[in-house]
């Protein structure tokens, strides 16, 4: 397996480049929306550090389950943005031949097993994927990305309980992005954090600043190492923020502007850039070059996707059964 994802030991510039790639990808989708009709997409703008921090701590043999806000996880894992955009645009060159759209992209060759848009679906499948790892051998662990909204589903509790009693190697990663579709979690969830819900199931947990990629990566390396060694679940909560509306086209009219402003000041990309500049690790020109390279790669991906053919209509009902 060849993965372009940063592996343990990745440099800070590589982490930044990975985040810029995600941001450029999502901004391209926003631009497509602005230009005319385009499939609905749930962007991960603002959550890049959580995705890159965790995925950069994984190994090639590890497997990932994710959710509807998955572009960051996929790109950090090394997915081709062209084939992702093609999938979003319903083209035959997409990872799922245009059948999944943006919401359910899976990439078997990268270990991205399943993407569920049923909130909590990924949590229902994760123990089974880990059971395969436990029974078929190998060192791999299973990472399951979900949000604070999914944590309020009953299946979250069923999943943690089973993974614990069966000793399954699942790294649960809750990206607590404060919003559950169109509702702030304060209205619908007891307490601010999901991590404390792990302890009653005998599962260790950690909460990390999800907008600091270095902190996330450090926590994820620790968490993944523990899962790898103990073959038991762990819950990592990344405290982050969804910078855009639930889905495109963008609408945050229901959000307190002061909340947005406060979180924008903690934008994960700006933070790392400021740190790199302050510590003399790069120059403004270096940063500009990284931004330009990310945009160039995504422009190329968009060109590939836009010019890819739609699936043949004869493909409509094929492959439903094996």
């Amino acid at each position: 397996m060849s993965l372009s994802t940063p592996q343990p030991g990745s440099t800070r510039l590589e982490l930044l480049a990975a985040m810029l790639r995600i941001r450029a990808y999502e901004e391209k989708i926003v631009a497509f929306h602005a230009a005319g009709p385009f499939p609905n997409v749930c962007t991960s703008v603002g959550q890049e550090a959580a995705a890159v921090g965790v995925v950069s701590a994984l190994r090639a043999e590890d497997q990932i389950l994710t959710n509807h806000r998955s572009a960051g996880h996929l790109l950090a894992r090394g997915a081709d943005p062209g084939r992702m955009l093609a999938e979003v645009m319903g083209r035959s060159t997409g990872y799922c031949r245009g059948r999944s759209g943006t919401l359910h992209i899976s990439v078997k060759e990268l270990g991205v097993v399943l993407t569920s848009t049923i909130v909590g679906g990924e949590l229902s499948l994760a123990p089974g994927v880990a059971l395969s790892r436990a029974m078929l051998g190998g060192e791999g662990i299973v990472v399951c990305f979900f949000g604070d909204g999914a944590a309020c589903e009953g299946i979250f509790h069923e999943s943690l309980n089973l993974a614990s009693v069966w000793n399954l190697p699942v790294l649960y990663v809750c990206e607590n992005n404060q919003w559950q579709a169109f509702v702030h979690r304060k209205e619908t969830m007891v307490g601010d954090h999901v991590a404390p819900w792990a302890a009653p199931y005998g599962i260790d947990s950690l909460t990390v600043d999800g907008n600091d990629v270095e902190s996330v990566r450090k926590a994820a390396l620790h968490a993944a190492a523990q899962v790898r060694e103990t073959r038991r679940p762990f819950l990592l909560e990344a405290w982050t923020y969804r910078q855009r509306g639930h889905m495109e086209p963008h609408d945050q009219s229901y959000v307190d502007p002061a909340e947005i402003e406060a979180w924008m000041a903690k934008d994960p990309i700006s933070r790392l850039e400021a740190r790199l500049l302050a510590e003399g690790e790069c120059t403004t020109a270096d940063l500009e070059a990284l931004h330009a390279e990310a945009r160039r790669a995504i422009d190329e991906a968009a060109e590939f996707a836009s010019t890819s053919p739609y699936p043949d209509l004869s493909d409509l009902a094929t492959g439903v059964y094996a």
Binding site: S132, M135, E158, W166
Partner: peptide, 25 residues
């Protein structure tokens, strides 16, 4: 290992079966 009791929780039983089926069992 191959014959297991589960919690009385049908969602996670079926979901675990689906996850396991997708990955080799």
């Amino acid at each position: 290992q191959r014959v297991r009791n589960t919690p009385l929780a049908e969602g996670i039983i079926a979901g675990t079966a689906a996850g396991a089926a997708a990955t080799g069992l």
